[in-house]
Design a protein around this nucleic acid. Structure first.
Lengths: 167, 167
DNA sequence: TATTGTTATACTCTATAACTATA
DNA sequence: TATAGTTATAGAGTATAACAATA
């Protein structure tokens, strides 16, 4: 049961540090670009992008929350901002009266279009410039299993202990 | 001059998305662990870890800021919190009277020791569990050039345009 | 004049808990 | 009873600009 390694070897440590450093820089740069080009936070961009990708341009609040935001109220807050800005619309779902369907507006798609070229430019120039096509494919092959593993791992790993009474 | 690609191919897009998803999940989980195990934010942990790694247990404020925090005032804020908690000490530098030397205390090292096992456990279980030794080495080889490239790339890539007048 | 660091301030974001309404 | 979403609220973090002090 090698579920909880007691240490990381130097190579693992290096990978972990590099991963954090690289994504921090990337994210920070991308956030600036999104803010300047379209007055969007990264989370807002992610939400818009998800809606824009959907065939219907819509998603339920709950579906949007998964993976983008970690609390319901956080999503309500962000959806409220997007709606106030006219980039999305919220309406009760037809089938389930409890649900809210969020739909991207034309203005939302336009904003996305405003922001995307610069976004691609930053990601391409910062992340992919030093990588060959083979490198990118290798990276894809390495990240996919990690991603799948994390998706299938409940957040329990965060708090393995301290779980005796009412929590 | 392939400096600003106009698009990302599907594999690149997948890598980018997976990278964001994986590190978001990892960071979120690690942040919970650090908060629960030692009442530390991730930034605070990074600062403590840097100081702990230093032979002298010290760094100048400016050196600490590089890579961990993106504004001077942010570092002052975090250093203030750490000092208030007794985990670091700030003192004027001997050589340069403008500089402040931050030093980790015994309590700081103890806090680090409190937190590290769980930290390693989370990172190992979440990031490295699905990766073989060869995988990790391959990943290291792919991330290193990206890291170096980002380090050597001034943040200019964030705002390529809009730079006519006084900004 | 440039650099180091602090302060004041304002703002964004996030999370918890209590609440409403529907399934 | 469980699920979907909102609200109120409080707290953590960040950044900008003005500032003081030293190089």
């Amino acid at each position: 049961m090698p579920d909880a390694p007691l240490s990381l070897d130097p190579v693992q440590l290096g990978v972990y540090f590099d991963l954090i450093e690289v994504t921090s820089l990337l994210r920070h740069t991308v956030e600036q670009q999104l803010r300047e080009a379209g007055d969007l936070s990264y989370v807002q961009f992610q939400l818009l992008a998800r809606l824009g990708d959907s065939p219907t341009g819509s998603h339920r609040m709950t579906d949007l929350a998964d993976g983008v935001v970690y609390s319901r109220s956080g999503l309500t807050y962000q959806a409220g901002l997007l709606e106030k800005a006219g980039l999305v619309v919220r309406a009760p779902s037809p089938d389930d009266e409890r649900s809210i369907t969020v739909t991207i507006t034309d203005a939302g798609r336009a904003r996305l279009a405003d922001v995307l070229p610069g976004h691609i430019e930053v990601v391409g120039g910062l992340l992919f410039e030093p990588l060959s096509r083979e490198n990118v494919e290798a990276l894809a092959g390495l990240l996919a299993p990690v991603r799948d593993h994390m998706r299938s791992t409940p957040p329990r790993s965060a708090a393995p202990r301290r779980r005796a009474k009412g929590e």
